[in-house]
Amino acid sequence: MRTSDWQPVLVLLVPAVAGVFLLHALSAAVRPVREPLRTGPFLGGLEPREHALSRFHVRWYPVTMVFLAFDMEMLFMYPWVRVVTAVGPSAVVEMFLFLGILLAGVLYAWREGALRWT
């Protein structure tokens, strides 16, 4: 009995997650050595001097800001696609004015060199 379109999604979660556990169980049953191997990280055979986990400097940090603006914009754009004809030309004008402003931001970021980092 199907009560909602989302019901199969929840049901699918069961075989998908069960499949992951099944693979782990199957592997534990057949592999010759059950315990995990404890070892160092691979860098080509030699040992590093520090742990790798660190505040990893991402040179593309400014890109994340530009991305965030567009990501927010998508929140409006998804529902917008369903009402374009209903609302009429003003819907299109407003949405693309908004997008145009964001694109101007992209051009500015580009001119400032934020989209290249080496």
């Binding site: 693979l23 199957l26 592997s27 057949v30 592999r31 010759p32 050595v33 059950r34 315990e35 995990p36 191997l37 404890r38 070892t39 160092g40 990280p41 742990h51 986990l53």
Partner: peptide
Amino acid sequence: RELVRQPRRTRA
């Protein structure tokens, strides 16, 4: 092949 292999744990 991966099913019969030992899992790995790197340091920390």
